[in-house]
């Protein structure tokens, strides 16, 4: 198990009121090394909050997070350096996840400059290698994010994320803001990287079809609580909970076979 989460809880206080909203309510799951856990739910179900809690971007109110056997939910930021080197995140909006004032070259150089790993090869060579990994031409090096398409930006974000050879990648709706054809390209890239580098994924999406394609196990989230969890085929072919059934039915309905090719 690369990641084990037990009884995770997180509440937010509404601004200007004393109301507390429980975004994540007693969520537990685990992730096997080299596999993908897909988390699905409607907007507001708490999926993005779980991503931020697991990445230690937010402190959790209660619960334990074990990464590679070590408890990390109570560590301070300076105790997390090892964790940070082994884990990365891909965000939903590819344009916003890149610094608009930095050229692609600088964006890709940043992990090395910050982490301080040269490993024998020069920075230039490493950057070219990263671009090749995400199947982009070297001519992209001198462009700014605003000159790139959504799919290209997302690839740069992925290249940046794999630069430090992470073992674990959290993908928070990585293809939701991309066009369908581009979605497929990015998903293919993620699958290829997982196969080549044995990265474990936490794949979060509201689109069940994408989750079904990418995951080995699926967790269905409803209003911050675990509705159902299990192997992918079981969830999609034999959903137990009524909510899960509704979700699965709706996602299948959209691609109705009234199309002859």
């Amino acid at each position: 198990m690369i990641l084990e989460v037990r009884n995770l809880k997180k509440s937010f206080k509404r601004p200007f009121s004393r109301e507390k909203i429980c975004a994540v309510d007693d969520v537990s799951f685990s992730l096997k090394k080299g596999s993908t856990l897909g988390i699905v739910g409607e907007s507001g179900s708490g999926k993005s909050t779980i991503a931020k809690l697991v990445m230690r971007l937010l402190p959790c109110d209660a619960g334990d997070i074990y990464f590679e056997g070590k408890e990390i939910s109570r560590l301070k930021e300076n105790g997390l350096t090892v964790f940070r080197k082994k884990t990365q995140m891909i965000f939903q909006d590819p344009f916003l996840s890149l610094d608009p004032k930095m050229k692609v070259r600088d964006i890709l150089a940043e992990p090395t400059l910050v982490g301080g790993h040269a490993n024998g090869i020069s920075l230039d060579a490493k950057i070219k290698e990263l671009l090749a990994c995400v199947e982009l031409d070297p001519r992209f090096l001198f462009r700014y994010p605003r000159e790139l398409s959504g799919g290209e930006c997302q690839r740069i974000a992925i290249a940046r994320a794999i630069s430090m050879n992470p073992d674990f990648l959290v993908c928070d709706e990585p293809v939701s803001s991309l066009d369908l054809l581009v979605q497929a390209q990015v998903l293919n890239l993620l699958l290829k990287l997982q196969k080549d580098r044995s990265i474990s994924f936490l794949f979060i999406s509201h689109d069940l079809r994408v989750v079904r394609h990418m995951s080995d196990e699926v967790l269905v989230l409803k209003k911050g609580q675990v509705c159902e969890m299990g192997p992918r085929d079981q969830i999609f072919q034999n959903p137990k909970e009524p909510y899960t059934k509704e979700l699965v039915q709706n996602s299948l309905q959209m691609g109705s076979p009234r199309f002859i090719i």
Binding site: R212, H213, M214, D216, R232, G255
Partner: peptide, 12 residues
Amino acid sequence: AGVYDQKPKTQL
């Protein structure tokens, strides 16, 4: 592209 009815975890 919208249907995803290929075998899971294979290249689309």
